[in-house]
Amino acid sequence: MSVHHLEEKFQQTVDAEIKIEAKDWMPEAYRKTNLRQISQHAHSEVVGMLPEGNWITRAPSLKRKAILIAKVQDEAGHGLYLYSAAETLGMSRDQMIADLHSGKAKYSSIFNYPTLTWADMGAIGWLVDGAAILNQVMLCRTSYGPYARAMVRICKEESFHQRQGFEALLVLSKGTPEQRAMCQDAINRWWWPSLMMFGPKDAESTNSDQSMKWKIKRKTNDELRQNFVDMIAQQIKLLGMTLPDPDLKWNEARGHYDFGEINWDEFWNVVKGNGPCNKQRLQARINAHEEGAWVREAAVAYAQKQANKKKQVA
């Protein structure tokens, strides 16, 4: 069978909404795109633990602390589901981690912003996880089976992340003037970076078209971003807070909210490594990996010792 014929058959399978599995033939570019996207997604979950980990020891109550720990544990779990899915495409876990540490592989830029106050924990849950969920719900129907299954699992767990965030902000919004100010400040700082999470505008996104054709993605960056704005613009009313965008207003004709222009220079700057925390985040990952090396080695030595013992008995 010629490659052309295989590609045609592959596209027919995708068009018929039949999932692609690890062992099926797939175009090399499909494999690479999925590998890049899934590994980047995995890295984002793992690096995403850092900004929130920052507040575990300073959570305002035992209840909030337990919730935050559970959320950060979920993110570790989500990273592991996704690394496993990415491994089915032929890259080893070690290689993926090496690529993250060398800067070759990217993670979501949102995690390069600092978490300055407790209210940031609420804003991250509500806005950052809220934005991530829209993307992830779409990805539950992505064409690559192992990725879709990982996303279904993740989506089931993610809803608590957003709800606890909104609830934390709701409590602050009903608090003292200082707490209300802290709440508004966190929303002001996280709003624009959250909008940037959906990626470049459709007109400038290079990967979108082919990804839509292969049903890796099912909605464009701009569609998802609009969904997000429409959702948040309503929810913020319940907090009695405002979004930091003077151009935000309901457009009756479109049936959507209009919103202001994103600062794309800032977006590309952070992607290229010049965000407020890029170096710190990556260094934290590298340190964790290097300082944990002896644990991994000891586990291997122990496993070997036990296996040898068993052999001797037999």
């Binding site: 295989l6 690890a22 089915t88 032929g90």
Partner: peptide, 19 residues
């Protein structure tokens, strides 16, 4: 025909055919 895809064994991929 499947050897163009480099794969590691995972679940349903037999070791010798994993590529």
């Amino acid at each position: 025909m499947q050897c163009s895809i480099r794969k590691f064994y995972y679940g349903d991929i037999p070791e010798e055919q994993g590529g």
